[in-house]
């Protein structure tokens, strides 16, 4: 059995769903950040698969941009988590409840 486009797309959909579920259910801010990273990489996988399937480099170039942006987002995210930990001694998302209506 040879690997086709569909295999890659299904894998990327599975990883993306794992990421979404992780963001929604996990309470640790760092794990939420990691789940977002999973979502982005699932999209990258889909982009590379499409790009290889279409013999067109645009998708792979986009992946480089996504990786760069993800790195910037992770840097800012970890800095903010550190700041919060310093002020509150917790990185549990449920503890961030100062503002509720």
């Amino acid at each position: 059995m040879s690997l086709g486009l569909a295999h890659f797309l299904v894998l990327s959909a599975v990883i993306f769903s794992i990421g979404v579920i992780g963001v929604i259910t996990r309470r640790n801010a760092i794990i939420v950040l990691m789940s977002i990273e999973l979502m982005l990489n699932a999209a990258n996988l889909a982009l590379v698969a499409f790009s290889a399937f279409r013999q067109d480099p645009d998708g792979q170039i986009f992946v480089f941009f996504v990786i760069a942006v993800a790195a910037a987002e992770a840097a800012v995210g970890l800095a903010l988590i550190m700041l919060l930990f310093r002020n509150r001694k917790s990185i549990n998302v449920d503890d961030f409840n100062l503002m509720k209506w």
Binding site: F16, G19, V20, V23, A29, V32, L33, I36, M39, L40, A42, A43, N44, A46, L47, F50, S51, D58, G59, F62, V66, V69, E73, G77, V93
Partner: peptide, 18 residues
């Protein structure tokens, strides 16, 4: 967290369009 979550959807959507 919400913004990055949204970016994930955006990129996945762009991947489908592409």
């Amino acid at each position: 967290l919400m913004g990055a979550f949204a970016s994930g959807f955006l990129i996945y959507g762009i991947a489908f369009i592409y």
